[in-house]
Computed example of a mutant assay.
Amino acid sequence: MSNKLMKSPIPIADFDISYSEGDGPVYSMPPEVFVDKEFYEFEMNAVWAHEWFCVGHASDIPKSGDYYTIEVGEDPLIVIRDRTGSVNVLSNVCQHRGMILLEGRGNTRRISCPLHAWVYNINGELTSAPGLTDADEKVESFNIKDVCLPKIRTEVWQGFVFITFDEDLPPLSDRLGNLGDQLGNYKIDELRASVPLKMEAFDWNWKIFNDECYHCSYLHGGSWGEMYPLCLNSTDEMVKFNDIENGLVSYNLISQH
């Protein structure tokens, strides 16, 4: 079930100062967005609980049982290919005592909890629980079919694996339909990475890192920055690949060289 949307503790109008239509300077967002716990909870709900996220590429797990682990927001997850060839994304938390089940990447025929040896198949269904499902010690009140690893809503688009925690969100394939047509000539669903994608965590706030190319002419002025002259009269919304109504925004980086 999808989480109910929360109201921002900071008035939305306070964010106007951090956005420009190309006719003036842009200033930092309200400081509370970086340090306030209440805004953090709002942000986790509004962003991570109600949007599609790319969590890797299907070619990184080509065989049945191939998997890798990842965290999205505050949720540890397993991205795994099942025996039918489908890519599933499962909670990486045992339903018994909350232990992390798998780490890193690899191939497995089953998912076993390191604490009490509860065993799940690669579809996330519980198959055995010592002391509860053993023939000589079976607990009649325990129904093994009632237990499974929560499965996260998943779509594979052009080879990329996307997930959302919002069951009511429109299908990703609908939102990206126009973009898929625009990128058709590149055949990106056939591309393969030379090495598997590795997600890394960094100890800084993502809102500080996220920036437009206002800095390019200065920070990168001695290298590639001069190839992309700063244009204050245009905005990212003018890029032909954008679909603002569907939340698709990209940079208009066109080199003069």
Score class of each variant (00 low, 15 high):
Met1Glu: 03
Met6Gly: 02
Ile10Trp: 01
Pro11Ile: 05
Ala13Ser: 09
Ala13Asn: 07
Ala13Gln: 03
Phe15Pro: 01
Asp16Glu: 12
Asp23His: 13
Val26Glu: 08
Glu43Thr: 13
Met44Trp: 06
Asn45Trp: 01
Ala58Tyr: 01
Pro62Gly: 00
Lys63Asn: 09
Tyr67Met: 09
Tyr68Lys: 13
Thr69Ser: 15
Glu74Arg: 14
Asp75Phe: 12
Val89Glu: 05
Leu90Ala: 03
Cys94Asn: 08
Ile100Trp: 09
Leu101Gln: 13
Arg105Ala: 15
Arg105Glu: 15
Gly106Asn: 13
Ser112His: 06
Ser112Cys: 14
Pro114Val: 15
His116Val: 14
Ala117Cys: 11
Tyr120Arg: 13
Asn123Glu: 11
Asn123Thr: 13
Thr127Arg: 04
Ser128Thr: 14
Pro130Ser: 08
Ala135Gly: 15
Phe142Glu: 05
Ile144Ala: 10
Leu149Pro: 00
Glu167His: 03
Asp168Leu: 04
Pro171Ile: 08
Asn178Gln: 08
Gly180Asp: 08
Asp181Pro: 02
Leu183Phe: 05
Gly184Pro: 08
Lys187Ala: 03
Ile188Gln: 06
Asp189Ala: 07
Leu191Thr: 01
Ser194Lys: 12
Met199Asn: 13
Asn205Gln: 14
Ile208Pro: 13
Phe209Pro: 01
Cys213Ser: 10
Tyr214Asp: 03
Gly222Val: 07
Gly222Glu: 08
Met227Arg: 05
Ser234His: 04
Asp236Ala: 06
Met238Glu: 08
Leu248Ala: 05
Asn252Phe: 11
Ser255Gln: 02
Ser255Arg: 02
